[in-house]
Every structure is written in C-alpha cells, then in structure tokens.
Design a protein around this nucleic acid. Structure first.
Length: 589
RNA sequence: GGACGCGUAGCUCAGCUGGAUAGAGUACCUGGCUACGAACCAGGCGGUCGCAGGUUCGACUCCUGCCGCGUCCGCCA
C-alpha cells in the first residue's frame, strides 16, 4: 500500500482527462497543515504555468474529474480547491479502516513485494559497506558505514530485492609488511598469535615504532610486502593468521551492533589481486589508460578544469604496483559481470567522493559497468568532537568502537537500574544492551547530512526525546496493555477497526505510509527518513494513548477492540521498522 | 589555484521533484502521576533559513556572485 502512488495515478488520470498533456507530474505530497487535508496535489499550478493558462480554472476541471474517481470510490471524503490551485484531499476514514485491516493481517505490513508486478521488478543490489581496515581495530569512523549500510540492506530485503552484501575489507597493502614482520618475530619467541594480536591497536603501534626506529626492520618489512605479493607460502600462512584474528575482532563488533554481516560477505581487497593485471591490460588495450611518467594513468577529460587539463587517475604505479583505484575498478567488473548487479551501492566517507566519481567514469568507458547498472556512491561526513575537530580521545588517539559501545551499555545499565530496580541481573544485561546499542545506532542513523557531524556523548547516550529508547518505550507500553488486558495480539479480529477520533486518524495515516518511507530510504539510501517516520509514529501513538482510553471502564467493547487493533499495528510497525534499523525491542524495560 | 560538500532556534538536527503561517528534539518556563508504564503528555519561549542579486503567481529549496568552515586534487586507502 502506497497512498501517494495511488493518488498520483488517480490525479494523473484526472489531469489528462481535464486536458493536460500526458505525463504531467501531479506532485502529490503530504499536506503541510491539517486544514489542508491529508494529501495535496500541487501539480496543476506548474502545468498551468507551462500552458500559460489560469491555474484555478484548470484546477477546477481536475477537481471535477476527481470527484468521481476519489469520492465515489470511497477513497476520499472531501476534495477542496485552495489558493492559486492547490488540491487538498481529505481521506475517508472508512477507507483507511479497511486498508489498515488488510495491512494488519499481512506479514509484510502491507508493503508490496518487488517482483510481484511487471512494473516493480526485483533487482539484484550489491551493497558494499563497513569495510574495516584489518590492520587495525575498528574505530568510531567505521560506525556510519557499517550501520547505515546494514539498514539499507535490510530495507531492500524487506521490500523484496535480492541483496548481495560485500564487505570490502582492507586486508592488503604495504602496511601488512611491517605487521607480518613483527608477527613473525613474536611467533619466533613462542608467543601465540591470538595473544599477540589480542590488542590490534597496540600491535600496530609496536610495529610502527620498530619500523620507524629499529635498524633493519623497515627493510625486512618491505621484503615481506614483496613476499606477500609474490605469493610466498610461509608468508601467506602468517598473513592468513593475522587476517583471521582481525576478522574475529570485527565479528565481535558486528555481533554487539546487531549487524547482519557474516564471513560469507567478506570480499576483501586481496580477493581482486589476480584480476588486477587483467584490468590494466584491458584499459591499455582499449586505449583508455596510457603510460605517463612511468605510471599508467587515465586522463579524464570529463572532469577537466577550466584550462582544459584533464583529471588524472593513476591505475598502476611506476614500480608496477597496483592501487585502490585498480581494486575498485576490478570490483566494478566483478559486481556487474559475475554478481549480475542491477545496482551497486557503496558506503564510504565523503573524502572518497572524487575517487569514486573517477572510478565510475573509467569503469563505464571500459565497459566494466554497463549503462543499465546503477552505481551509487553514498558518502557521509566524519564524526567530529565538540571542538569541531575529528573525534579523538583526550590523548589524540582514535576511539575504539568496542569501547564506545561498552560505554553506551554501561550508561544504559545505570539508567534502567534507576528506573526499574526489579529486574534480575540477566534481564538487566539484556535490556541494557538493547537500549544502549540502540541509542548509539539511532543517534547516528537519524542524521543524513553528508557533511561532518558533532559527536556528543551526552546527546548520543541521552535516553530522552527523539531517541531509540523513546521508540522502545512506546513498544513496551503497548505490550504492557496487552498483558494487562490479558489478550494476545493474534486473538484480535482485525476487521474490528473503526477510525473515529482525530488522533486515531492521524495514527492510521501514518501507519499506511510505511511503504512510501521505505521506498525513499531505498532509492536515496537515507535511513534517517525511517528514523523520522518511526519517531513520528511513536509520538502520534503517545498522543493517541493520552487522548483515547483503551481499557478504561467506560470504553465500549467495540471501541476497545478497534483501539487494540491500532495498538497492535503500531507495535508491529515499530518492531519491524526498528528491526530494519538493526535496533531491538523488548516486552519490558 | 581547481573540484566537491556544508552554513536553518542558545545547542543537536529535519525540511521530499520549488508550494500555503520554516519544523522536531534539547535547554529554559508553566501545567499534568492514589498511573491503560511520567524514559511520557499538554502548552509557552526561541528564526533576517551565511550575505547580495536573479528566475516566478510563489524560493530554505533552482541560477549567479561574494563571505565563512571542511574535504579532496599523479604514484596511501
């Protein structure tokens, strides 16, 4: 159910019947104020401008057409013409009730599934997200890519697309020479790899110190790079050990974060290694890449400056080494060629925007990316501290993601103990984890800006206002009603829904907008829209809850049943919506 | 120097393909719990949408120029 699309189709038809050209945008949107109805069609004004006619007269004709299409069919109860040509549509409460009843008994909450109609085909979507650098531990900078990517993935799957996750881990490169040399020494002095690599950050620092200060170590590190890239067996064993342990670190974080990435989703940089020479050969053969100053580069005329100097994109170093440009081109080829992607989505920070723009242009020229494959680089800003500078510890180090999450859970534990001291230790731990992690994720997911954003412990771990706990609280409250009424949700008769009060109608409208929101989240890769939606839903529910008694003595059985159906729908929608964001709910909190 | 992004309430942020009187949260103030869970609700205060032009019935939104901040720009990723 997508009300907006439904109205768009109907208004479109009415517009052509009224004499407007085919394909005129009806411009349906949610009304900005209650007195303007529920939805409004603003397309007439734009069309009138083009045709140089009076918008009001034109709108009058369209409204005449709409009367039969909307009123007689029972969708709307009132259509008004306002201002210079706004068409305000007031939806019919009975129609809302009927649709909502159907939604309630649907597992997918009324969200139509891709692939069930010829105009809404299922797509294969490759999503590249998280991609931590395995040389180090995950830090706060990896949070955004990981959770935004995961939310979009879940939204796509819920809508019925086929998703292929790709965790493009940084498991290759010169820094591994130094790390492997250091690991080799540790093992030689009888240390166990797991112990040596228990603290990756520390291990990296030790290796770096030796690299900078220790006589001969840097040379050994470089030898290891050469050996590694040359496929030396002994070196490969070391590398594999390192990678395995580092991946395990990441998996711990994914587990804590409730992120769906698994081993099978890992497609690290090293995986493209065998393809890199072929990519260069192809680029050279097609005369896309040329040799310049010993390196192989692509001159991109499409991105030339005012003086006509093209943008330069190096695909192979003068020494023969490959770069991440080469790897990313190779990834394009693999994803469209082998994985048959219709769409490729990549989540990285905004600093790489230029790089991915270049990758796309070159990949399209080389036909690694056919025209019918969408390539969406979705950038996001960095986390900044209160001082507006990159978010660091007091001593200037990076903040480990694991520590951030632990702190969130610790704070949540304290708060829950205070609010509700009766929980057992086990219950407390479970709830605190869901609340703390949820708060961190929601704080981040609810922001869409591609610019940098200010990280603040207080804001992020605050449990009041527009936060995950507010939504979880709304959910728990609903469960509590069912407990109190001693009614199970699946005993409800969903046809017993009757929208009467204003607060009920607002809630009903919101509930029917889930698909609209998900479609925007999917097309724009913006989970913050879902966050806003769920907050508004919870907020409307709270208002309804205050205004419309459910279990009180003076409430009739019919009204009670109807309101319980609404409660049930809100709880299902909150649960599913939060699940898409990777945030868990609980019966009590 | 060039490219890209950003500038909205004290603070953190929404604002969809141009639409009606620019919205939330927070902070601050006023009310509401012998409770269908107050992690809540109702209300109030708070704005020259960086500045200046332009396009038009209409601009936070589109165009141009400036100011400020950030990021990137041939051999790191």
């Amino acid at each position: 159910m997508n009300i907006k699309n439904l109205l768009a189709a109907i208004v479109s038809k009415a517009m052509t019947s009224a004499g407007l050209p085919e394909g005129t945008n009806p411009a349906i949107s949610l009304s900005t104020k209650p007195q303007f109805g529920d939805y409004q069609a603003n397309g007439v004004m734009g069309a009138a401008k083009k045709l140089k006619t009076n918008p009001r007269e034109l709108a009058t004709k369209v409204v005449e057409q709409l009367n039969s299409a909307l009123i007689e069919s029972g969708i709307a109860e009132k259509i008004e013409l306002a201002g210079p040509g706004f068409i305000n549509i007031h939806l019919n409460k009975a129609w809302l009730s009927t649709n909502l009843s159907q939604t309630a008994s649907d597992e997918k909450l009324g969200v139509t599934q891709r692939g069930t109609s010829p105009t809404d085909k299922q797509q294969t979507v490759v999503v590249d997200y998280s991609a931590p650098n395995l040389a180090k531990e995950m830090h706060v900078g990896h949070l955004r890519s990981t959770i935004i990517g995961d939310a979009v993935v879940r939204a796509l799957e819920f809508r019925g697309d086929k998703v292929i996750r790709q965790n493009h881990m940084g498991d290759w490169g010169t820094q591994f020479g130094m790390l492997l040399a250091h690991l080799s020494d540790k093992l030689a002095s009888n240390e166990v790899a797991e112990t040596a690599l228990a603290d990756l950050e520390n291990f990296y620092r030790e290796a770096k110190v030796r690299f900078d200060d220790e006589e001969g170590f840097a040379d050994r590190a470089r030898e290891y790079v050469v050996k590694l890239q040359g496929g030396d067996a002994e070196c490969d064993v070391l590398w594999q050990q390192f990678i395995d342990i580092s991946i395990a670190h990441s998996e711990e974080i994914y587990e804590k974060l409730n992120v769906t990435l698994a081993r099978k989703d890992i497609m690290g940089e090293s995986a493209y290694n065998p393809d890199l020479p072929k990519v260069i050969d192809e680029l050279m053969a097609k005369n896309i890449a040329v040799e310049d100053q010993g390196a192989k580069v692509v001159f991109i005329d499409e991105m030339a400056n005012k003086d006509g100097e093209p943008s330069v994109f190096i695909v192979q170093k003068s020494g023969g080494g490959y770069l991440y440009a080469t790897t990313d081109l190779s990834a394009c080829r693999y994803r469209s060629g082998e994985l048959n992607a219709d769409r490729i989505i990549i989540f990285t920070d905004a600093r790489q925007a230029l790089h991915f723009k270049q990758v796309e242009i070159v990949a399209r020229k080389a036909e690694f990316l056919p025209d019918n494959v969408a390539y969406d680089h979705c950038p996001f800003g960095m986390m900044m501290g209160d001082d507006g500078k990159p978010f660091k510890t007091r001593t200037g180090g990076t903040i480990k993601l694991a520590e951030l999450l632990d702190e969130a859970v610790t704070r949540a534990t304290a708060l829950i103990k205070e609010k509700n001291p009766d929980f057992s230790d086990e219950q407390l731990a479970d709830i605190a984890s869901k609340v703390g992690i949820g708060a961190v994720k929601f704080a981040d997911l609810s922001k869409n800006r591609t610019s940098d954003y200010i990280f603040n412990w207080k804001t992020m771990l605050s449990f009041e206002g527009a936060t995950a706990p507010y939504l979880q609280y709304a959910y728990s409250r609903i469960q509590s009603i069912f407990t109190k009424a001693n009614i199970s949700e699946d005993q409800l008769d969903y046809s017993q829904l009757n929208i009467v009060e204003l607060q009920e109608k607002s809630l009903a409208m919101k509930l029917l907008q889930l698909e609209e929101v998900l479609d925007s989240v999917i097309s724009e890769c913006t989970p913050n829209l879902l966050c806003n939606y769920l907050y508004e839903l919870a907020s409307l529910y709270m208002t309804f809850y205050e205004a419309c008694p459910i279990l009180k003595d003076d409430v009739s059985e019919e009204v009670k049943q109807s309101r319980l159906v609404l409660c049930s729908l809100v709880s299902k929608t909150l649960n599913k919506g939060l699940d898409i964001l990777g945030i868990e709910v609980m019966e009590r909190m």
